[in-house]
Amino acid sequence: MSTTDIGPKGPVGQVGGAVVDHIDHRTGAKTGLTWFLKRNIPGETSWFQTLGFAAMAVFGLQAVTGIVLAMYYKPDPASAYSSIQHITNDVTWGWLVRGMHKWGASAMIILVFLHMARVFIFGSYKYPRELTWVTGALLLVMVMFMGLTGYLLVWDQRAYWATVVAMNITASAPIVGPYIADVLRAGTNFNSETLARFYSIHMLVIPGGIATFIGLHLFLVSKLGIAEPPWSKRATRARRAEEASARAAARERQPQGRREVSVEPAPQSVTAEAGQ
C-alpha cells in the first residue's frame, strides 16, 4: 500500500526503518500503535461520542497552561496574590494563559458532565463496560477536587473564604471528616501551610491520579471497543432479524405453522439477510 514498496529505499529511509524495527522488535510499540489505530470500530458512531476525547484534550491543555503558570506562581501566603497580579499584568501573554486555565477548568467540567450524559443516554455503561463507567465516575470526582484545590491558589478574598467554608464542611463529616480536614489544612485551622498543601495536591496528587485513571479508562475503551449507538441502522437491522427468527421459531412450534414453513422457506431468507 505504501509508496516505499516501489523501488529501493533511500539511506534515510533505511536507517529510519531499521530504528523503528529495532524498537518494535523489543517493545512492540509499532505493532501496538498499529493495532490501536487500525482496530475496527462500529461503522456508525455519533458526534456525541467525541466528548470524552475533547475532555482529555482539555486535560492536556490544562497541564500545559498549568506548567506555564507554575513557572511564575509562588505558593506562599505572603507572595501568592502578588504573583497572580504579576502573571495577569506583567508576564507576556500571562493573562491569556491564566484565562485559558480558568476557562479550561469550566470547559472540562462541562465536557465531563456532557460525556457522562452521553454514556448514560446510550446505555454504554452496561455489560461489558461497567468498569469503564466506574473509572470515569472517579475521574469526575477528581476533576471536581481539581476545581476545589485550584480555586484557593489565587488567594483572593472570595477564594480564601469559600475554601475556609469548604474545609469546615469537610471537617463536619462524621468520624473521618475532622482528620481529612486536618490533612488538607495542614492543621486544625487555616494557616500559612494550607496554601502550599493545596498547591501540592492541585499540582501533583490529583493530576497523577487523573493521568493514571485516564490511562485505565483508555485501556478499557480500546480493549472493549467503542459502544455502538443503540439506534444505529446495523443494530436495528440485527434486532429485526432476531425478532423475525424468534417469530419464525415460535410459528414452527405450532402445528399449523409447520405446514407453512415447508411451503415457503421464510426462516432461511431471514438468516441470509442477517448474515449480510
Binding site: 475496527n40 462500529p42 476525547f53
Partner: peptide, 21 residues
C-alpha cells in the same frame, strides 16, 4: 459483528474527535 462491519478507528473516529477538540 458490528466491529466486523465497521471502519478503522484511524481516521474515521479520530478526525471527528479532533474537529470537536
Amino acid at each position: 459483528q458490528a466491529k466486523k462491519e465497521g471502519k478503522p478507528f484511524f481516521p474515521y473516529a479520530i478526525y471527528k474527535d479532533h474537529i470537536v477538540a
